[in-house]
Write a protein that binds this DNA or RNA. Structure first.
Lengths: 194, 194
DNA sequence: TACGATACGGACCAGCGGTCCGCTTCTTCC
DNA sequence: GGAAGAAGCGGACCGCTGGTCCGTATCGTA
């Protein structure tokens, strides 16, 4: 096992980069205008350190995203209802989608940075696969919509970060209204053949 | 009216750039690896010409996209059923979505290039607004799904270029199957409260 | 044909992601 | 505690990209 504990300064710097990047992405309009040099400067480290720690820009964004997503992931995998695994599918699916939506609302800059990396589509990431699989399996047990696989994709597509950002920032739709609309839409999809 | 007819060489070059860019985008894996210099070279013009004619990269892609989309747009605005305006909403909505899907399938590289420009989200474009408004107005007259505005967004999100590309290229889903799945999903959404 | 307007094109520039390597800092072992 | 060596640091540096600029060639017109 080549698992060695990192040095103290390495850990400290890693954390500093996380914080700095998070705040920079949150402030700027477009994720593109946050450069690696900016992040390094804001974190008080050299650019080399940044690339050594994360590999490249995409990997840094992804790492940050995963870190912020972890609480949600935990709540889904082993939390209490209605998010946790003990919930019957018909209630868990809406809860899941609402959780995803809220996460994207709270972290929309970061999510947009991730989905807009360009180098690889957001669909090739591991966490999308996870969400999709979970959602599909739940849908399969309902079993209102016939095609659970595509339905899962379509429902997740309705929570795309840029759509969410567009509706809230451009159309100035309040958070609660957006949640409500997604919930209604989900209910419609789930109840289509009942 | 400052509308002046362009010089012959200008028109010829513009067309050459269109053709070259189209074929380059179609060939390459990721739109990012097609550079402006590549396009200029393939079209047999200088880089300056390219930027003079279109402004910047995003504008070039957008112009190309609009040009390719024009036939579809025509068919929708003044064509025969089931796409044209004479069709009753309940049949026209699925037809519309199928047309969008087919277009994205045929031009998925170009569509990905457009949606992934990063500088501005795909939702701030004029043609998205057009599709959304049309779809929403049709939905409003059905009126199966209560929230026609959000439903229109959600349905269009299911035809996002990167999702389409992911399903066909990565998951190797055949064209007809994808069309069928989208049609079924649409039907489900439309028939949710009937 | 000659002349003004328009467009051409490639050298040029600034800024980006990413690399490299001499130097510093931490860890470890005596 | 101190010395040796591994691990990490950081900023000068590189290749490449989108975008600009302006002397020159081409077009439209009288």
């Amino acid at each position: 096992m080549p698992e060695r504990k990192p040095r103290k300064d390495a850990a400290r710097n890693r954390a500093a980069v996380f914080t700095a990047a998070d705040s920079l992405f949150a402030q700027c309009r477009s994720p593109e205008e946050v450069t690696m040099a900016d992040i390094a400067a804001a974190a008080g480290v050299g650019k080399g350190t940044l690339f050594r720690a994360f590999g490249d820009r995409t990997a840094l964004i992804r790492a940050l995203y995963e870190a912020r997503l972890e609480p949600v992931r935990n709540a889904v995998e082993e939390g209490p209802p209605p998010l946790g695994p003990a919930t019957p599918p018909l209630q868990r699916v809406p809860a899941l989608l609402d959780a995803v939506l809220c996460f994207k609302l709270d972290n929309r800059h970061l999510a947009q940075a991730l989905e807009g990396t360009g180098t690889d589509s957001p669909y090739r990431t591991e966490h999308y696969e996870r969400w999709h699989t979970l959602l599909r399996d739940l849908l399969q047990r309902i079993p209102a919509p016939a095609d659970s696989d595509f339905t899962a994709h379509a429902l997740l597509a309705a929570t795309r970060a840029d759509l969410v950002a567009y509706l809230t920032d451009e159309k100035e739709m309040p958070r609660e209204e957006l949640r409500d609309r997604l919930a209604k839409f989900t209910a419609g999809v789930l109840g289509s053949t009942t």
